[in-house]
Design a protein around this nucleic acid. Sequence first.
DNA 1: ATTATTGTATTAAGTGCTTAATACAATAAT
DNA 2: ATTATTGTATTAAGCACTTAATACAATAAT
Lengths: 123, 123
Amino acid sequence: MPWELKSDRPIYSQLIEQIELRICSGVYPLGSKLPSVRDLAQEAAVNPNTMQRALAKLEEDGLLYTNRTSGRFVTEDVNMIKQVKNRLAKEHVQVFLKKMTELGFDYEEILSIITTIAEEMKE
Amino acid sequence: MPWELKSDRPIYSQLIEQIELRICSGVYPLGSKLPSVRDLAQEAAVNPNTMQRALAKLEEDGLLYTNRTSGRFVTEDVNMIKQVKNRLAKEHVQVFLKKMTELGFDYEEILSIITTIAEEMKE
DNA sequence: ATTATTGTATTAAGTGCTTAATACAATAAT
DNA sequence: ATTATTGTATTAAGCACTTAATACAATAAT
């Protein structure tokens, strides 16, 4: 899973989202140790300060915790991760429905379009 | 339709999106005259330079055109607007499906969730 | 003819994000 | 005991975006 960073939004917030995603999808498993700030920064081709900023936020949210000098770890609270996953899913759906509704599509049309495009994407 | 501007992304690109949306959804009808740059800027609580930047981009894309000092107008090309609308819809669906898939949901689950949340949102 | 409105351009200042280059303290590894 | 690695903090610089304050030319409105 490569790091996808665009220049149209602050990098640190994109990092937050992608690390959240990695935690929710199991790329960084429950309780596992993360690479060091410097290693993560290098992986993502980003300044260590920027990576640190993202990690600090995730720690503040309780998704990560630090053991002073032994490194940083993913929370062992399964429930918290499930909640984050559900929150993200709900947000994605709401944003999507809002945008499509604003564009003038009704519910039936939305389901129809999503089905069509999903078929296209399978190929 | 109020202007929704957040601080986590360049304002000018949010303006582009929202004006595009207003054109696609008929808030600014085919061939109609837009408010002046200064008026639009005031409506959106934004600097005229920033609004100008957004309008210039939309003009470059062909969605708007300028009559030197009589003002700025929406294109009369129905087809172009339809194309934009379809492009936006497709992009929204693709982004949505990508995010949900990354989170670990399969197609059935996505349809199920979207149906549930759509029901909730009707209330 | 005069005035107001149109789009457009310029300059200077402020802000937030990012990077680079360090440095420090704590502790794991040797 | 020494060394390397950990997270963390600081300072300075550069960049893009935004705002404020103007100004100008063209033309619509009066």
